[in-house]
Amino acid sequence: MEYVSPEGLRLDGRRPTEMRQLRAEIGAVSKADGSAVFEMGNTKVIAAVYGPREVQNRSQQINDQALVRCEYSMANFSTGDRVRKPKGDRRSIEISLVIRQTMEACIMTHLMPRSQIDIFVQVLQADGVSSYSCVSLSCSLPLIDHPHFMNYPKNNQSCGGMEGADYVNRTRSACINAATLALADAGIPMHDLATSCSAGYLNSTPLLDLNYIEDSAGGADVTVGILPTLDKVTLLQMDAKLPTNIFEDVMQLATEGCKAIANYIREVLVENTKQLEYRRGS
């Protein structure tokens, strides 16, 4: 299948180095210390941060730094098929761990000893079959190209229950971005704003920020998380294999994407801070 047209446009009309539309909103959960909604195209994630607060389980208390906890979940209504997912399945545990490690790397935990920071991330909408069916139909693609009917092969290591993995992996970067925003909103001191973005390689073209159809195509998918001003990588995950020289290009592209997201997040935060400050008055 052709993922990049001869004119250099992708299935949803983007250029190869173009990102999906971003939207961020701070302060979505009123009772939380910090919260944010982050949208990347059709993926929508809400994050809430509670803390730093008293450690709930005394045995987990760390005497010289804060304890960071993260819980990831997908709302039942987030995907096309409404299936009841058991809480704490292995995929969500894995992604909770990924988010926790990424965030722990940028929070200055030593400033808040004997306390606990809870990050709750929930996917409200996952880019997928249901949300794309209308798009692909409106693009007048033949119905047989619809992902539901396609028998797409994927060189993925974990073949069992791939559908669930796809959803989870696709929301990874949006989750990290939402968590960063929520942490910044909670006024928790951090070294840098960790941001994340994915890139793929299809039709011998590196593509930024894959959508559902592209992700299901079976090409490589590289998710990168960076600390933009420190120029450090906090997360790097890849499904499938890529030659080293191509991998470098794809990763470079994803890093650029991360920086673009960081700029956007920065704008949103500055605007929010300004607003809070002038409303408060002197």
Binding site: D192, L230, V270, K274, Y278
Partner: peptide, 16 residues
């Protein structure tokens, strides 16, 4: 906003 912006122009910062 106009009342407060005179006193603290571009002193708002974000992380990093």
């Amino acid at each position: 906003e106009s009342l407060s912006s005179k006193s603290n122009a571009n002193s708002t910062l974000t992380v990093a």
